[in-house]
Computed example of a mutant assay.
Amino acid sequence: MSAWPEHALAAASHRDPYPYYLELARRGWARDEGQGLWLAASHAAASAVLASPACRVRPAGEPVPAALDGTMQGQMFGRWLRMSEAPIHQPLRAAVAACLAVLPSEEIQRRAQGLARRFLAERQANGKGLDGLADFLPAATLASLLGWPERSLLHLSEQVAALCRAVAANANAAEREAGEAACQMLNAELSTLADAGWLARWRRAFEVLGEDALCANLLGALFQSRDAGAGLLAAGIAWRCAGPWDWRDDAEWRRRLRADPVLHHTRRFVAEDVELAGQRLRAGDQVLVLLAAAALDPAGPGEAMDFGRGRHACPGERQALAIARGALAALEEIGPDWEALDGSMVFRGPPNVRMRRFGAGASK
């Protein structure tokens, strides 16, 4: 592998992209003509883009990807908090935040640990088994807390994976068709769950916003947990392969995520001419916000950026860390061959996620 990533979109799967990121962070802004992108790499540049109302999560005039227009996936996508720029964004954020805040971290961790323990009891704790655990556990834990029966969680995680593949920019027709079927199936299963516990809390929070917004954002939470949650869990395993570390401490997770992030970038679309952190941007420009570079910026405050900043920051940091801690607790009970896992590790996953794979190295 080259000593330097080919470009910013290839950096997350590079063996060591951090010297490259550090150089970009020191420059602040860069233009990648080959990819047609501005790179916001310093902490100041990244923060300015994430805070600016001129920089949107979707292109102007295309709130839903054209390939998903007219599908249930498209309808769900357009209602997700993560993709909303409309006035409903603030009420959506308040409702989602209220729902996520109500569950204690300890309860989430216990549920994740129990699910991981049972998942691993039926599989070897080798590379393939741990890849499967990373793919399964984040969405399965949230779904279990919502009331999905345990017998259906493996299938649910596979359907969430199909939805993720369908929404990707490079999805083909077969993947989009599979994603549409998965979306319909997940929505139908959601309607059969008992209106109790955590799901009842979601329903109360979304009472004014309506059933469509509720269903979309419940599925959106499962969708968002999948790749980022798998990357976080796999990172924790990789760090354990290198030696014991205090995975029980959230502050230690954040320290490690600053030096070795999981989510490396996010994209923004410029809706109007604007100057941010000394760089003039034009309507129609695309900006790749290099969260991994911004975290390393010597001029920045020295903080992890994996969960974003500003109005589109991910509200699920506490839940994601609790799930990862639960997985590592279950793994410590088993005591896998950490050294062998370390030797088999490769980086392969979505362009924005530093995804470790310990088995065949292929993403599901």
Rank of each mutant, 00 (worst) to 15 (best):
M1P: 02
A8R: 04
A11W: 00
D16F: 01
Y18A: 13
Y18K: 00
Y21K: 09
L22M: 11
R26W: 09
W29R: 11
G34F: 02
Q35K: 10
A40H: 04
A41T: 09
S42H: 14
H43S: 12
A44S: 12
V49T: 04
S52V: 05
P53C: 10
A54K: 14
R58L: 08
A60P: 13
A60Y: 06
P63V: 10
A67T: 11
T71Y: 06
R79T: 06
L81R: 01
S84F: 07
P87Y: 04
Q90I: 03
L92R: 03
R93E: 13
R93L: 14
A101E: 10
I108P: 04
I108S: 06
R111N: 08
A112W: 01
Q113V: 09
F119G: 04
R123F: 15
A125P: 07
G127K: 06
G132D: 10
L133E: 15
A134S: 03
A134P: 01
A140T: 09
S144E: 08
L146M: 08
W148Y: 15
W148I: 00
L153T: 14
L154H: 03
H155M: 04
L156M: 06
V167R: 02
V167Y: 02
A168I: 01
A168C: 10
A169I: 12
A171V: 06
A174C: 07
A181R: 11
A181C: 01
C183A: 15
A188R: 15
L193P: 04
L193A: 04
L193I: 00
A194M: 11
A196S: 12
G197Y: 06
W198L: 08
W198A: 12
A200H: 07
R203V: 01
A205N: 09
E207S: 13
E211L: 05
L214K: 03
A216P: 11
N217P: 07
G220Y: 02
L222T: 00
P244Y: 06
W247Y: 15
R248E: 14
A251S: 11
W253I: 11
R255H: 03
R255P: 00
L257W: 05
D260T: 07
P261W: 00
H264L: 07
H265K: 01
T266G: 13
T266E: 11
R267Y: 05
R267E: 13
F269K: 09
V274Y: 02
L276C: 02
L276H: 03
A277Y: 13
G278T: 04
R280S: 08
R282K: 14
L291V: 02
A293F: 01
A299E: 15
G300P: 13
G300N: 14
G300K: 11
F307R: 12
G308E: 09
G308R: 10
G310E: 10
A313T: 14
E317F: 09
R318E: 12
A320Q: 11
A322D: 11
I323E: 08
I323H: 10
A324Y: 03
R325L: 04
A327G: 12
A327C: 15
A330Q: 00
P336S: 07
D337H: 02
D337C: 00
E339L: 10
L341V: 09
L341I: 08
G343I: 01
S344V: 01
M345E: 08
N352V: 02
R356E: 02
F358I: 13
A362H: 01
